[in-house]
Design a protein around this nucleic acid. Sequence first.
DNA 1: TAACTAAGAAATTCTTAGCCC
DNA 2: GGGCTAAGAATTTCTTAGTTA
Lengths: 127, 127
Amino acid sequence: MLSDRLVKLRKSKKLTQQGLADKLQITRSSLSQYEIGKRQPDYGTLKKIADFFEVTTDYLLDHSNEKSMVQEHKTSYNLTDDPDLQIAFKDASDFSEEARKQAIDFIKYLKEKEKEKGRIHKDKDNN
Amino acid sequence: MLSDRLVKLRKSKKLTQQGLADKLQITRSSLSQYEIGKRQPDYGTLKKIADFFEVTTDYLLDHSNEKSMVQEHKTSYNLTDDPDLQIAFKDASDFSEEARKQAIDFIKYLKEKEKEKGRIHKDKDNN
DNA sequence: TAACTAAGAAATTCTTAGCCC
DNA sequence: GGGCTAAGAATTTCTTAGTTA
């Protein structure tokens, strides 16, 4: 919920409602309503809030969607289209160093195998 | 702008306004207004749209903030700094579907092993 | 001082119907 | 069919002032 996150973010910066309202160029009354969940700011204000606290609007709106995150991740970093592979990569990033090395080595092994396969017959995979 | 992205996303799925409106449970008139930029959907509808197309709300709102993105990725993905893992991942992106699946499965296996290692006690929940 | 609320004003959105291509 | 628009209804938000702790 926007309200919860807003309160936490504001307090993390040790600001009063008035203080934050000034920064966002809205009235403190409006801000109060957002924090209680009685009103919703327009998209412009939402983006202002996100920029001020340096968070995503998804975070503010409590919108978590793994696939969408991967999608965003992909466009930002130019990675693969395979969502499962992206999730696997994400998971591997959290591994211990040992497990990470095992993953890397296994992929190296697969890479060699792919090379072999390429020599034997032409690739017939369709995406 | 939401409007531009909405049109592109809808057409990428080869849907008419009526078709998408039905999926989102809104009238086609409302959807038309969103696509032209005359109206803005409430947050609930915004999230519905994001979920349906599997994108972030930041993408829909054209909200790009490098710091927030990095923040989000670090908190959501704990993206690794390990360059070897990144290279391995890029290699895997070029694999055949079969090899890619093997890599994914192996990482899943490692993930389970990591879980076991993480907890002292032996839980038997299957996930 | 800091935060919340009430109530009328103002702005925005929704609905319905109709229009254009 | 497919997409856009007008106009009144409905809803939401804003503003101002006031209340509470």
